[in-house]
Amino acid sequence: MKAEELRYAKTHEWVAVDGDTATVGITDFAVKLLTDIVYLSLPIVGKSYSPGQAMGEVESVKAVSDIYAPVSGEVIEVNSALPDNLVLLNDSPLEKAWIARLRMHSPSEAGSLLSYADYVKHCDKAHH
């Protein structure tokens, strides 16, 4: 997957849309901001989330960050290998470090997420 082809939430989640399925992960930018991630809790399969609702958590030694649902939908699959291989978040944030797949309640929501270019701008602003 190419970063340019994905959609983004301001809360630093990326979304890959395939039909009514959204694959969600956290961005490289977020991973770097948190420094060494030591723990990740996954969303619950079968549970539905609305946009902006916390569905998981990532932790570094000194900080905790919620992972927010970028779109509304039901979690149909989670990357259960990820919590034990957190290094994937650094090595392969867009491929192997996906976090969950959601069956979107209204796929049109994805359209309101940021494009890559807008997300990069958002990060620049957030960082300064």
Partner: peptide, 12 residues
């Protein structure tokens, strides 16, 4: 595991 504690996680 200090992220459980009040000085980091505050109200949560």
């Amino acid at each position: 595991l200090q992220t459980r504690e009040q000085h980091i996680r505050r109200d949560k």
